[in-house]
Design a protein around this nucleic acid. Structure first.
Lengths: 199, 199
DNA sequence: ATGTTAACTGAACACACGTTCAGATCAATC
DNA sequence: GATTGATCTGAACGTGTGTTCAGTTAACAT
């Protein structure tokens, strides 16, 4: 009945998402038009509506997919029991995941306000879950006596800000390799959490 | 000739800037219309053009004024020679300045891309100057042997990210007073820069 | 070769945008 | 009280917006 092989839909669909992502990141959701997205794919604006219900859904699917990806990838990780080793593991994971997706990270921070209330709450809930992960990680280190921090809750928020910062300036072809970046940020993070200096 | 006292221009002008600031921060530059700004002031859209050449100038004046304010206020500070004391001083200054202006901080990060190239370069140059301040501060502490950091350049960027984070979540009527926030972030910053634990 | 249908075009829709400007308004001056 | 000029209104302008949809195209099944 329906044609399968060579179907354009399996190509055009992802290309629309990719074009939307790049344009939203560069110009902002409100400044991007459906015609711009279509032009980037090589199609007319009307064709986009075969793949998304409206412009809002285009944004939400990007953000929700990003957060779902983050949480599921962390769930698949094997995390050491020792708090210091677990911290290093988290730092490496967080940096790697975020550095590979600068556009998604950017619009996840910037374009939340362009979501409808329902969509907004869905994203914020996923973000809350992620913040809880690092909070628990810090707490277990404090309890174990490995970390010494002024305030676990604040420190967890500060740590996320600290660890997400490189997204703004890190370039794969820059002065640092991603391995060096990870090493330096592991050291920086240990100091921030008051891990006594050794090993 | 011209009326002076009771002139509306001295009231309407600042009110337009204020309304633009609030709306840009809440909805984003591209999503805000001149009619919305005018409505917030209680005026018709055309009246705005008595106070600004166009929408772009409205944004630029906000951002440029913000950065000029930041640099001039820092220049007016009396900074201790001792690196650790200077660091504490900077942390307190940075937190205080940024926490009092959450909307300006927000749009200074978000709306840079909506500036024309000329306006963009003007803002980035002022930002570069500010980054240099904290970089030099770290460097002098490293040279003096007070700080121990994996990489001064990276640390300076990480520190700005760390210290600007509270803008996203700090509330004057929240769990912490701004004094407590400053104390906790001074401690956190000292640890991040590897200041040996004492005093 | 024919029929079917997913995929897309191109034009249209109602509406909103930034900006302009002739004219109304009114506080300050003479 | 008449004049002046800064301040603002209200309507208009050209253009662009998200979205819809009847109709065209082309890849598949038969």
């Amino acid at each position: 009945m329906a044609r399968k092989t060579g179907s354009h839909s399996e190509i055009t669909g992802p290309r629309i998402k990719q074009a939307a992502l790049e344009l939203f990141a560069r110009h902002g959701f409100a400044a991007v038009t459906m015609r711009q997205i279509a032009a980037n794919v090589g199609v007319q604006a009307g064709a986009i509506y075969n793949y998304t219900s409206d412009k809002q859904a285009l944004l939400f699917d990007l953000l929700d997919g990003h957060m779902a990806d983050l949480l599921s990838k962390w769930s698949a990780e094997l995390v050491p029991v020792d708090p210091i080793a677990a911290l290093d593991h988290f730092v490496a994971f967080h940096l790697d995941f975020h550095i590979k997706r600068p556009e998604l990270v950017f619009i996840s921070y910037m374009e939340l306000r362009n979501l409808t209330e329902v969509n907004f709450k869905a994203i914020v809930e996923k973000r809350r879950i992620y913040e809880k992960i690092i909070y628990n990680l810090i707490l277990s280190g404090v309890v174990a006596g490995d970390f010494r921090v002024p305030d676990p809750k604040i420190t967890s928020l500060a740590l996320i800000a600290l660890l997400t910062g490189p997204v703004d300036w890190f370039r794969e072809d820059g002065r640092l390799t991603s391995d060096e970046l990870t090493r330096k940020y592991c050291a920086l993070t240990r100091q921030t959490l008051g891990v006594s200096a050794q090993a």
